[in-house]
Structures are given as structure tokens and as C-alpha cells.
Amino acid sequence: MWLTSKIKQVLLVLKPGKVTLNYPAESRPVPEGFRGQPAWDHTKCIGCGGCANHCPARTILTRDLCPEIRILFYDGARCMYCGRCADVCPEKAIVMSPEFELATGDRDDITQSLELFMLTCQRCGRCYDLEIKNAIDKLDLRGYRYDSLEARTVIRRSTERFAPDVLGETEAYRRPERIGG
């Protein structure tokens, strides 16, 4: 019984032979419609911020430096390559490129930044009224929540309501005790 089983196993192993690809010397081409790193075409982008608004990973940031210049910033370190941005882009300015070899020691390699010159109103010289929040300006609330464009790191902090001293005042607050005395 076990012998026939073993013979079958030997055949199972011998038949396919070597299947390991000689990567990275020879790489397999990616199929059509592959979801690699998203790429922005700055000539098509109108700066609507739809991608930032719909990014599940919140890795696309829009920020207005001044009324004429909008920064659109993509940080690949958080991207999960779902392709949602490419789906929602009304101008088809985003394509999912076949690029997947994205391991890097420098995260600037996988970030993209667009400085978009926004067309201003001929009468008042501004794009949007930044004081009265219109729908696009509300995008400031979305996007990933880093403190600054430069820091680009998740700064973990206790929120205002739960600052450590406030925490200490709550009635049930108690530091866990060490076990075993």
C-alpha cells in the first residue's frame, strides 16, 4: 500500500521537473489589465481630487498652497494597488502601470507629486472661495492625515480628549498591575 503511494509520489515529483523561474534574470511579463503602481498624467489631471476622496488607504493628498496651485501628492508606501483611483478619475488621467517591482530603500522612489496650476476666475482671480467651503475644498478633510507634506509619517498621538492627564482623571482609569506581585 505505502509502496504504490510512494511510487506515485516519485512520479508526481519527476513529471513536472523544474518549475522555478529564473527570476530576476528572466521575468514573466505581466498580463493585460495588471494593477501595478498607479501613474498620473499631469497633462490630463484637472485637480478635482476624486482620487484622494475615494482612496481606501487614504494615500493621496490634495492641498492648496495658494488659490492657483494645488498639490496632489501620492505616497506609494501606503498604497494597496486596488485601482480605485483609476476607476473614479473622470479624465482617465490615472492608469495602473505594469510596474510591480517597487521594493526600495527610499520612499521618494515610489511617490508622485503633481503641482497643478488651477485656472482662476477672471473676475476675482481665485479658483474657489476658500472661506465658504465648497465641495472640493472639503477634500482637505480627506486624504491621508499627516501633519505636513514633508513629514510623511503617521504621527501617532493621543487625541485631545484622551490626553494622558485627562485619562488619569476618569474614574475607572487604573494602570494594569504586574502579575505575580
Binding site: R156, S158, P164, A172, R174, R175
Partner: peptide, 20 residues
């Protein structure tokens, strides 16, 4: 080491709370 009396799924607890 999560402090007693803070229950994260309650609505008043912010999603990004990181207690010491």
C-alpha cells in the same frame, strides 16, 4: 496594558486613540 474603563468601540472614543 490597555487602561481599564476605555472601550474602543464606544462612539466617544476616537479611532486613533493611542493610550500610553
Amino acid at each position: 496594558d490597555w487602561p481599564a474603563g476605555i472601550h474602543p468601540l464606544r462612539k466617544e472614543v476616537p479611532y486613533n486613540l493611542v493610550p500610553p
